[in-house]
Nucleic acid binder design. Structure first.
Lengths: 218, 218
DNA sequence: GTCAACATTCTTGTATACAAAATTATCAAG
DNA sequence: CTTGATAATTTTGTATACAAGAATGTTGAC
């Protein structure tokens, strides 16, 4: 762990922000974090720059770095974009997907189903992720896959919560089946629609969750 | 120009990279640029971090910062994503657009038409940009609008070239009309399709341009 | 002349130093 | 007690210093 500490720090901070160590608006104290990581302020400030561009922290001149946790509205917006990106991946993948990848999707789905039966949320989550990432790659568009993955990662902590909704896993399974069918039959529009609805429903469920937690929010 | 030099430097470098001052693979010399900007290496290195995350430069540990100009394949991919993002904006805008914004679109289109008649490429370009940015905003999704704008900006230098294609401006005008119609009638799918095709055609035209310039490319 | 081992020079990455701005504390006037 | 001004303290932003790694040049063997 001797080279490029700044990179590792950026990653570590990103992880910490994602996992909710910091609340929205918290100031990231340079000297405190420098001590904590055992480095000087310089690599920390470089890390801040990166986090700022991905929207995780806001860099206010002469004031410092403040963490920017997305609020309810922004989250809804992000889920909406995620839905559109996945739809795009699906549309392209319907024309470009390989037979092997289709098999991967079916396998992931099978394992998902087993996880549902066993009430195994963790396994479901892992296989679900594999399902979606496979579709990203099979879009045949590296740039699109990269963007989709980036947003997917950013929404990770919020997606996980709503798996707990009653019946969500089973419903999600059925949606996955529809996606595979559309892809297998090479139907771009159907694949796009199936994926958009699949993800959009997550956004709605999340909306419900928010509403139930914060009655007066928004 | 006394505060936050690092930010200005990042912007300036971005501009220089976009405008083709640096070729793909060029190394950005810290000390040379530091002199050039009249600052020390520190703010430059902070700027590098930001450029790295947006993909404009690659930061190789212990080697330096190298500019990463997108190649033909990556550009095609980016245009494809742009098409999908615009389609998404259109789909949402069809349901959410305001009457005033519709009027803005019609006005931009009228000015575009005038520019076409006058062979005024610059004006056409400006109004065309206004047209698209309006649709981004009218998606009613700030996050989406932001992402669309970011990619739009990145593709700027490449889009401009293909306006010179014969008849492109006139064809583009007709496509704009179709978009406005779909938005005015509140037809999400039609708006999405019109915008996707409109942008995708740019990607194709660009593909042609590439092929004509580099016969053996790809 | 070619190649390899070594020394030299450059460049990056990090730490520290310092100046300017912002925040906080102190204190006097009302 | 509140308010306003001013001083002390933090904290940021930038410059400089230094250490380690990479590139380059030199020399000697074959």
């Amino acid at each position: 762990m001797e080279q490029r500490r700044a990179d590792n720090i950026a990653e570590a901070l990103e992880e910490q922000i994602f996992s909710g160590v910091y609340m929205d608006g918290d100031r990231l104290d340079e000297v405190r974090l420098a001590e904590q990581f055992g480095v000087s302020r310089t690599p920390l400030r470089e890390a801040f720059q990166r986090l700022a561009l991905s929207g995780l922290v806001e860099l206010i001149p002469r004031r410092g770095a403040f963490v920017r946790q997305p609020g309810p509205i922004e989250l809804i917006e992000m889920f909406e974009v995620m839905a559109e990106l996945e739809a795009a991946c699906g549309r392209l993948a319907a024309m470009r997907i390989s037979e092997g990848a289709l098999e991967d999707l079916r396998e992931a789905n099978a394992k998902c189903q087993a996880a549902v039966d066993a009430q195994d949320t963790d396994t479901y989550y892992v296989e679900n992720e594999r399902f979606h990432k496979t579709i990203y790659r099979q879009s045949g568009n590296g740039f699109l896959a990269q963007e989709a993955l980036k947003l997917h990662k950013r929404l990770k902590p919020f997606r996980r919560q709503q798996l707990k909704f009653r019946g969500r896993m089973a419903q999600s399974m059925a949606e996955h089946e529809a996606v595979v069918d559309a892809l297998a039959h090479g139907e771009p529009e159907a694949a796009a629609r199936a994926l958009r609805d699949h993800v959009a429903v997550q956004g709605e469920k999340f909306h419900n969750l928010m509403a139930s937690l914060k009655p007066a929010a928004e």
